[in-house]
């Protein structure tokens, strides 16, 4: 992953110099360990600031919504699936985009690493599938596979599904991963346990809406929680209002979510709200054989009707 950046820079520079695009959207080096900042490069001189490593978890498709320019965009597997979804939903035109595909080996979960060491992290270095964490008076090395974001650990679409150019050869997709183990654990609970589980899960929420805003799918001009005429949801920190927000947001992502993990990654209080979207993702797969963002040729199952749609739930 670390070696990709030279190729990303080369392609970006060429695109900008040739006037093929008005900007390239990628990442620049962050100021905190395990953080990079989404960044748009407008001139070939600025290309040097682009970076690529395992801290580029934010989904860049989020920065394409309703843009009018010609854009080069660096896209890992999940980003590319959200680009497909954006194109299907008319949030961007395929012709506007030059997609620089990045076969991805997974992003680092900073929460996991922070919790695994005692003390403040000063620097995190990545090489050969290992992640070395340095701090005052300690240095620890982890296997990258053990500190991946939860969604990356079970990802089976690491390669971009749509691209104009790849930065390297496609990577081998993970096989034999159990993608829905955590969802099944919840399904096995009793009603009361489920209810309490989500009560606890969502209790720390501060309603900053970072999950929603980091999500490429959440582009409504006015979100239902912001609507005031009529006001659907209370705006305070009442637990029922907080749950309503999270549950409804998840529903709005049904059949669209690519499990890119941006929501969980963005959450300042560490809530795994992916458990909600994953349930819907699993249902879409089981009921309709559908995974979001894999193709431009088919309409998503929830915006089409087919006579053979499953309907056991209708009595």
């Amino acid at each position: 992953m670390v070696g990709y950046i030279d190729k990303i820079k080369e392609i970006s520079e060429r695109l900008l110099k040739d006037g093929k695009v008005d900007m390239v959207i990628g990442f620049r080096k962050g100021t905190m360990p395990m953080m990079n900042e989404p960044h748009r490069v407008k001139s070939a001189d600025d290309v040097k600031n682009l970076v690529w490593d395992s801290n580029c978890g934010i989904n860049l498709a989020n920065y394409l919504t309703d843009r009018k320019e010609k854009i080069g965009i660096v896209a890992k597997g999940c980003d590319s699936r959200n680009i497909v979804t954006h194109i299907i939903e008319n949030k961007i035109d395929r012709d506007q985009l030059y997609i620089i595909g990045v076969p991805c080996k997974g992003m680092i979960d900073s929460h996991k690493i922070t919790n695994a060491v005692s003390g403040e992290i000063v620097d995190v270095v990545e090489s050969n599938g290992e992640v070395t964490v340095k701090g005052d008076g300690f240095e620890e090395t982890f296997n990258k596979a053990d500190v991946l974001q939860k969604n990356c650990a079970v990802c089976i679409h690491r390669n971009p599904v749509i691209y104009d150019e790849l930065v390297t050869d496609l990577v081998e997709e993970q096989a034999d991963v159990d993608r829905y183990e955590d969802v099944r654990e919840i399904e096995a609970m009793s009603t009361e346990e489920k209810h309490n589980f989500f009560d606890d899960l969502l209790a720390p929420c501060i309603r900053c809406y970072a999950c929603r805003n980091a999500c490429p799918l959440c582009y409504c001009p006015t979100c239902f929680v912001d609507e005031s005429r009529p006001q659907w949801v209370g705006k305070g920190d009442d637990p029922v209002d907080i749950k309503t927000f999270h549950f409804l947001r998840a529903y709005h992502c049904a059949g669209r979510c690519t499990d890119c993990g941006s929501c969980e990654r963005a959450c300042p209080v560490g809530i795994n709200m992916r458990l909600l979207t994953k349930k819907l993702e699993m249902d879409c797969l089981n009921l309709y054989g559908w995974e979001a963002g894999l193709t431009l040729d088919n309409r998503p199952p929830l915006d089409t009707y087919k006579p053979d749609d499953p309907e056991e739930f209708i009595k």
Binding site: E37, R40, I206, R207, C208, A210, N213, A266, P268
Partner: peptide, 13 residues
């Protein structure tokens, strides 16, 4: 502002 997702995290913390 480019990277900003306009969440309220900074103001709430």
């Amino acid at each position: 502002a480019f990277a900003c997702i306009n969440c309220g995290t900074c103001t709430y913390v």
